[in-house]
């Protein structure tokens, strides 16, 4: 059987989650490997969520937020941008492939972009293979 990755998607309620909804209502096809968790803002994401996801067997983590400047709470994603950049550096220095963690800004009207990003990311994770480094066996 081919490798079907498990991908955790963490999406902001106001943009990416609504964008994902739009992708669904417009019947866009994208891989089913992503499991989306809705949070109120990308700055709600505790970096431990990401570390923990990798430990519990996620092969990739995709974070979606509003475009900088468009945050529903004005500045949330600007804090998140800095924080998640640090998370990325830490994962990389700890030895995890940087391609397994991605942050994308997807607005509520970008259903197309959501589908496209998920397709692309799933392909990327498939190429990387199962994530075994952090996974608790």
């Amino acid at each position: 059987m081919s490798f079907e990755p498990k991908i955790l998607g963490i999406a902001c309620n106001w943009c990416t989650y609504t964008g994902a909804d739009l992708a669904g209502t417009t019947r866009l096809q994208y891989p089913q490997n992503i499991r989306v968790v809705r949070v109120m803002c990308s700055s709600r994401i505790n970096p431990s969520f990401i570390f923990r996801a990798f430990q519990l067997g996620a092969d990739g983590v995709l974070v979606g937020g509003c475009h900088p400047g468009d945050c529903h709470y004005n500045t949330g994603n600007l804090y998140a941008r800095r924080r998640l950049a640090v998370t990325k550096k830490i994962l990389e220095f700890a030895g995890l492939e940087p391609g397994r963690f991605r942050v994308e800004w997807i607005s509520a009207s970008e259903g197309n972009k959501f589908a496209q990003v998920v397709t692309e990311f799933t392909g990327q994770i498939k190429a990387l293979g199962p994530q075994t480094k952090f996974k608790i066996s």
């Binding site: 900088p68 800095r82 950049a85």
Partner: peptide
């Protein structure tokens, strides 16, 4: 606990 509008997306 700070940010700048002009922080680049490149950091991600």
């Amino acid at each position: 606990v700070n940010f700048r509008m002009e922080d680049s997306d490149k950091i991600l």
